[in-house]
Simulated scan of single mutants.
Amino acid sequence: MSLTVRPITPADYDAVARITADAYLGAGYFDSAEYPYMQKIMRVGERAAVAPIIVVERNGVVIGSATLAVNGDEWADIALPDELEFRLLVVDPAVQRSGAGRAMVNAILAQARETPGIRAVSLTTGDDWHGAHALYRKLGFTRVPERDWPIPENGKMLRVYRMEL
């Protein structure tokens, strides 16, 4: 099974919206796709118009995506001036633990290393997304607990990880 990481195209928007909803709702972060934040992140075309999005595909089928941002971007939550932040990294729950998340993170790290002025990669992940925590630690990210922050809508804590390049 080969995995390919590439920039999103409009043909991918519906798949990315479905995968995003399945991942966030499946993890219990929201009760419904009608929640305002869910509606925002599922408007993939609007997101892609202002932020780089990558997808990972297996055998020609999109199975995951991630949104990239730098300090000051509309989709940046935590990026410091020398950081590339990735957000909304999702893998279709039906194929999680397939290497898709790792493939996207490796592509993001490669891009960050080629971007002038970027010296680190940061991310936020859910407090109880233990599989994601394990992946990020395995890839070399470290916790930055002083930068943790709560989701405004429900108060659940988000964990910040960072990797110096």
Rank of each mutant, 00 (worst) to 15 (best):
A21H: 04
A21E: 15
D22Y: 15
D22M: 15
A23F: 10
G26K: 13
G26D: 04
A27K: 13
Y29H: 13
Y29N: 15
Y29V: 12
Y29D: 12
F30A: 12
F30S: 01
E34S: 08
E34H: 06
Q39C: 00
K40R: 14
I41P: 00
I41D: 01
M42H: 06
V44E: 04
E46W: 05
E46Q: 10
E46A: 15
A51V: 02
A51R: 04
A51L: 03
A51W: 14
P52N: 11
P52G: 03
P52T: 05
I53E: 10
I54S: 05
V55I: 06
E57M: 09
R58I: 01
N59G: 10
G60I: 01
V61P: 02
V62R: 03
I63P: 07
I63E: 02
I63N: 04
G64N: 07
S65H: 14
S65I: 11
A66V: 10
G72Q: 06
G72L: 06
D73K: 05
D73Q: 02
D73T: 10
E74A: 15
W75K: 13
W75G: 00
A76D: 06
D77Q: 10
A79D: 08
D82S: 12
E83L: 04
E83A: 12
L84D: 00
F86P: 00
F86V: 09
